[in-house]
Amino acid sequence: MPEKKREKDLTIAEKLYIPEIVKGLGLTLKSMFRPKFTMEYPEVKFIPPASYRGRPVLVQEESGTERCVACGLCSRVCPSLAIEVQASETSLEKERYPVKFEINMLRCIFCGFCEEVCPEEAIVMSKDYELVFRDRSEAIYGKDKLMVPIRQVEDRIEFLRNFK
């Protein structure tokens, strides 16, 4: 980094200020004709990369059951107390499953701790960033809204395997 200039170090042209202003104006003028970054959202949707942390979802296996074993670690680690899990017994090999799994999306801060702590890769952050509710009770997502077929979150799981 070049040494910071003090007022006494300035050249006469710089002291006059006007050439510098002209330079600045030239820069902004140039950028007026550069391509625009704006994405016109409702028509053009942003498709986030796998590293994106959208709303957390539960992974649904091909068989239709959730991967989750209701261990409650996500609920424990959740810094905003957004997750509520109630376990119950199942005859499947995994022994327990969440009879109730609720995430309060108003509390969720999308930190991804739940995903990080999950021993089963059962809760992952999706690419869904469009969360709209009309009242607070609607913001509590139950299993019906949280379960997502594994196909839809494959790239996130892949990402986690590589970088977690």
Binding site: G72, R76, S88, E89
Partner: peptide
Amino acid sequence: FRFKARVWD
């Protein structure tokens, strides 16, 4: 009590 709750909750 099986599976009713985690002890830390």
